[in-house]
Design a protein around this nucleic acid. Structure first.
Length: 268
DNA sequence: CACCAGGTCCGTT
DNA sequence: AACGGACATGGT
């Protein structure tokens, strides 16, 4: 096991992990145990330092995963220049980074996310992994890897209902079967071709798996932000997304995450 | 009981 | 093109 330290100003464990972009984590005393694909790490922020603990062979993976090569100070400053609610949101979420999550895992968890809440998305995801994923160990901790599409395709709809997926069960099964049979989840493909993936989920996958930061996913929270902080009158979420994407350009995805986290935690 | 949660699909205007 | 109801499920 290896530890690496980084300045915490633009890399904060709590806000980055709990801002709603990823679902496979456990809050522990002092930090967070996180799982991505079949790998795990422990992340903690103490004062001005954030410490990443992982197997030596996984350190590089997590440095990529946490997007550590990017200057988030520039993004934060751009948000400050916008002023208003965004500046306040960026102040509260200064340490948020956008992760680079495994594409299939992102597809599955955000299929679960529609018209759902974060605790339930997390619970259903964990049940899927506990049943279909391979057992792994991280020091004394046990966890399950995220299952392959092939493994998920072998389960049936009743299983996905049993984990609490509800009416999304057929979405999960069909996505698993498509990917298992060679359909690619990659940058540039039309993600809305997957049954159950509309514009918003496609934007989440684009942003959270492929780091396409021009994407601005609009959910119920961002719709509130749009109306209450930007005086918007549109109801169509596609039009609301277009408004923010045009306004924020290549920083749209980062700003969306500042706003989402701040709105959900009552800062704005 | 109604309404909400990181929405999408599908049938009807 | 635009609109509205249905869809599982648990929490407030």
């Amino acid at each position: 096991m290896t530890e690496r330290s980084y300045p915490s100003e633009y890399f904060d464990a709590k806000s980055s992990v709990e801002c709603g972009q990823m679902f496979r984590y456990r809050a522990e005393e002092g930090g967070y145990f996180l799982i991505a694909g079949d790998k795990a790490c422990f992340l903690r922020t103490e004062g001005d330092t954030t410490v990443l603990k992982a197997e030596e062979s996984a350190i590089w993976f997590f440095e990529e995963y946490f997007d550590l090569g990017r200057d988030y100070g520039a993004i934060y400053l751009a948000a400050q220049r916008e002023g208003g609610a965004l500046a306040r949101a960026a102040e509260a979420g200064k340490g948020i980074r956008i992760f680079r999550q495994p594409p299939f895992e992102t597809l599955v968890t955000f299929l679960l996310s529609q018209n759902n809440n974060i605790p339930r998305i997390r619970a259903a995801t964990e049940k899927i992994c506990a049943t279909l994923g391979e057992r792994r160990a991280f020091g004394e901790r046990k966890y399950f890897a995220f299952p392959s599409a092939g493994r998920m395709a072998e389960a049936d709809e009743a299983f996905y209902r049993s984990v609490g997926a509800g009416y999304r069960a057929p979405y999960l099964l069909r996505a698993a079967k498509s990917v298992a049979s060679g359909e690619k989840v990659c940058e540039g493909t039309d993600l809305t071709c997957f049954y159950g993936v509309g514009k918003k989920v496609a934007d989440c996958i684009s942003l959270f798996a492929f780091h396409r930061t021009r994407a601005f996913p609009v959910d119920t929270w961002l719709e509130k932000v749009y109306r209450e902080e930007y005086g918007g009158k549109e109801r169509d979420r596609g039009k609301i997304a277009a408004f923010f994407e045009e306004k924020f350009g290549e920083n749209a995805g980062y700003f969306q995450q500042y706003l989402f986290y701040a709105k959900r935690s009552g800062v704005i």
